[in-house]
Amino acid sequence: MLAVDRLGVRAGELDLVTEVSFTVSAGERVGLIGESGSGKSLTATALLGLLPEELTASGSVRVAGVEHELVGAPERLLTKLRGSRLAMVFQEPMTALNPAMRVIDQVAEAREVHHPGRDRVLVEADALRLLEQVRLPEVATLARAYPHQLSGGQRQRVLLAMALANDPDVLVCDEPTTALDVTVQAQLLELILAGVAERGAALLFITHDLAVVATVCERVLVMYGGRVVEAGPVREVLTEPRHHYTRGLLDASDLESTDEHGRLHAIPGTVPAAGEFPSGCVFRTRCGRADEQCADLPPWTGVPDHGHACWHPVGGDS
């Protein structure tokens, strides 16, 4: 349904995202994980052609049923596809809704954009139905409310309703639950899963929460420094990681294991600023296993949707 091939994002001379390739088929749920600053959100924005003016994308993004290549596609075409074939749920429910518009109008608008000329009464009925689908409580009252009168979870429901308004083929969720309470998180994840399942849509789910990936996704891509460093089925990647970065992420998420000083595991150092990633393996400056060989770019081992890029994979070569 969605095929991304060697997608890159550049800011002038600076590579922010490099050679990201993956596919998501209809009904499939793929996770994209990594720390902040690893290029996850940029990848998502590039998919929809929403990069800020000063950034340029290269490579290829194709959506099933669309003749045209999406990278560098004319704005007219992209405008037509956004919201109808490709939709996105944003991270910050507090800021992603227009504060000056009633929520039902915003959902109605999302629907109306791709159904011009549809009767206003019908559009409002559609919007109300969508809000019911995402189980917005007290729909009759809250639909007429302004965003500031809603809680974070309720707003995220509204955003989901807007994203699903035109039954997209591809739904991109950019950390949709990060800003929410854990209890609300689970409800929203269920809604997202139900929403894409009903529509047979492809889901690209961006998060840094490994537990969320484990519940939501079938496959996962691990990103670091703007590159995909490991990819594969969730179960495999999360239990037998091959890349040391994935290993580090997993150790850091494990709240039961500690090091010899009784402290939780952490990946040493911090994510470098954009443009300050090392040459060769992007992770080598923070990797315990790095040696001279890592100064060369490690090749991708395996197939695009299942493999890793590391000279010294965890568990040895196989």
């Binding site: 037509k80 919201g83 996105m88 944003f90 504060p99 000056a100 518009m101 791709h114």
Partner: peptide, 27 residues
């Protein structure tokens, strides 16, 4: 703002964004 980005991601055209999303918020 993110809601303008969200409107763009929903396929809103620039003119519509100006009138429906920007104007009410600068009024």
């Amino acid at each position: 703002t993110e809601y303008v980005l969200a409107a763009r991601s929903a396929g809103r055209r620039p003119l519509a964004i100006s009138v429906r999303h920007v104007l009410p918020n600068v009024a």
